[in-house]
Design a protein around this nucleic acid. Structure first.
Lengths: 150, 150
DNA sequence: GCTGAAACGGCTCTGTT
DNA sequence: AACAGAGCCGTTTCAGC
């Protein structure tokens, strides 16, 4: 849990992670060193896990996006799924979930043929029993990096 | 579409967006000004849309995550869904999708009660017919901001 | 076109109060 | 938390490939 000042700093960094500490300080009413120390502390405690670039998938040539529900063989550990999926460059996010499927993976591919190829490779993993995928038609909203509001 | 050098720069920024241009230059074999010019160009062309912070939802107090499939009334436009969902701080991503549901929203909430409350409010939106939600058990993988591999 | 080198201004960062 | 210093970085300008 963060206090108000920390939240505003995180919010400022969420909008532009390369903004200077002096800028952020002016925004939240602190000096630059004070902001830096708070950011350092947020990184140390794990609230901030890093800084990343926001890219336009289409501009990078990744025009096809989809969610792949993965049904695993019984007694498959989350670690096995993780190790299996992290080898795919095309898988940008994955979680174990409640419901019928065991896990959901978010996949970016250059086109439908590429998407299909990835799908087939995932379905061929030894821990995967079957998959069911949903294609993204148009993205409506994207916020933050690991997806948390602040 | 990017050439090899641009891709490696984007990759370096994806790992740490606050890395210095000199550092990235050393990594890809370019001088700092050359890297800056390429990053500027990537921003100008829209391949890079910004820089953001990677936060740990749990550390910020958002412990409950889920995907909400939204079934809309007929003749609901994507714009209507977008305008309806963007008012929710808890919705961090949303897309229209193929399959039975019309859209999927990724939701972060502080706890299950909070999640349920958000779910009820979304289900009460005039354009929503019904919802079906899946809870995230444990996140396995997260890369990039808007989710593209590079 | 692209690059690398140099120089200036601003920022990061540490230590101190 | 603010202040002050040294050092580093972002940024521009310039010339060369």
């Amino acid at each position: 849990m963060l206090n108000d000042l920390d939240e505003r700093i995180v919010h400022a960094l969420a909008e532009d992670a390369r903004r200077s500490y002096a800028d952020i300080g002016q925004l939240v009413g602190l000096s630059a060193p004070a902001v830096k120390r708070r950011v350092d502390r947020l990184r140390a405690t794990g609230a901030i896990t890093g800084f990343t670039v926001r890219v336009d998938p289409a501009a990078l040539g990744w025009e096809t996006e989809g969610f792949v529900e993965i049904y695993c063989r019984s007694n498959t550990s989350p670690e096995t799924i993780q190790r299996g999926l992290e080898r795919y460059q095309e898988v940008v996010a994955a979680s174990t979930v409640t419901g019928d499927a065991d896990a959901v993976a978010q996949v970016f591919a250059s086109d439908m043929r590429h998407f299909e190829r990835v799908l087939e490779r995932i379905a061929g993993e030894p821990f995967v029993e079957r998959t069911k995928s949903v294609l993204v038609l148009s993205p409506l909203l994207r916020r933050f990096s690991s997806g948390s509001p602040a």
